[in-house]
Amino acid sequence: MSLALRLEGVTKRYGAHVVLDDVTLDVEPGTLHAIIGPNGAGKSTLFGVVSGEHTVARGRVLLGGRDVTRVPAATRVGMGVARAFQVARVFPDLTVADNVLVAVLASHRLTQVFWRRRVPERTEREARRALERMQLTALADRPARSLSQGDRKRLEIGMALALDARLLLLDEPTAGMSPEETAATTRLIREVWRETGVTVLLTEHDMQVVFDLAQRLTVLHRGRVLCTDVPERVRERPDVAEVYLGVSAQHA
């Protein structure tokens, strides 16, 4: 249930602005891999490239060894790529339960069924379980628009999980969450990863979360890969500290 990801010399530009500069990256199947880097480093753009949201100027994207550089997003989902966005995207006027149900229906390829009214019992059950897992059962009948930022993030992660992903892309999964919610979500990600063996690629500014979860770390800076290594060694690198300290000095 895991998918390998490989980026080969990927370059992404907006006009003259190079956002991803010759990025080469290997994510081993079944690992929990984190991408860190200061604001504007290109982390979300990289997720967009992997999931099929963005086209690239140069380079290749490979999923499980297959070149998907020109494969549309919905097809990549079919290959097992599930994504949660940095700013959670849910269906605002649908209830929380319906949001999850649509995801489950999609994962079973049942969303084209217009000739049957009832949703199969198995699908309903699965959606209920997904709600429970995300601790959203109490909010099931609320429209998603009424949720807090943290709850919305959780809902979206739940929808991504409902897709039975083989590669899970989580863009700052705990952004906007309280410390308790953050801890619970971190636990949940590790649990799901253990149970399913899914490949997880995540970005996060909360270093606690990163060092709690990640087996491997890639540091991205101004669109370039600075290094990819195990967390302990990344932490000791002087250039990484400099990138972060330099940036925080600018911000101060």
């Binding site: 919905a74 006027d93 649509v102 995801a103 969303t111 217009f114 049957r116």
Partner: peptide, 26 residues
């Protein structure tokens, strides 16, 4: 029948956010 089918739900999801729907594989 059509609007209350799974297809109908997918349509409302697309109405709400076509991009999100695409990233669910629709």
């Amino acid at each position: 029948w059509v609007v209350s089918s799974p297809f109908g739900r997918a349509l409302t999801a697309i109405r709400e956010d076509p991009k999100r729907a695409a990233f669910l594989g629709i």
